[in-house]
Amino acid sequence: RPWSHILLAVSPFLVLAVLTRLLLSAPGSPVIEWLVPLAGVLVVGFLCKSNTLFTVYAVGAFVASLVLCGNYILLVHGGGYTGRPSVSEHGWRATELNSIRAAEADLQKTFREDTVVPEGPVATLVGNEEYNHVERAYARRTWHTWLTGLYAIERHDALVWCQGGEPGVLHDRIVIREK
């Protein structure tokens, strides 16, 4: 079989690779989902003598690759998995920092300058139940991470906790505590 036939058969996978890489930079992009079908087409292209069988395999592998890339997108956007653990964790820590800053501002509004804020849940101290319902998330490797590049997202219920102190020096006395 001439090289051009095999190149023609693998080119849709390369287009898919470029598209997914460009469109899905933040939550991660599929790799194995187009690489395995592409490798399959190469193997069948070199070793299979029947042209019909080769075409059927190439088309089938491409359809499967489309489904796999689509499924990858659904998995990383569904909230259960992430392909870029460091990017996701950076986002989660930023959200936690926002809660801490908001808690600090609310505490400074609630307590006068010359008083000492007692230790306790910020929700009770400022009378805003939202501070009892924050979340702490982690990206965890699973048994298939080496293959799929996907990390499972583990979520824990948490609350904003104030360790007590003067209103002016609260910024490092407020923490996110898991329930």
Partner: peptide, 20 residues
């Protein structure tokens, strides 16, 4: 995830059948 891994497995199995 099950769909994902089984589809990848199918691609490999069919490639081995086609190559042999």
């Amino acid at each position: 995830m099950t769909l994902h891994l089984s589809l990848l497995g199918l691609i490999v199995v069919f490639a081995l059948i086609g190559a042999s």
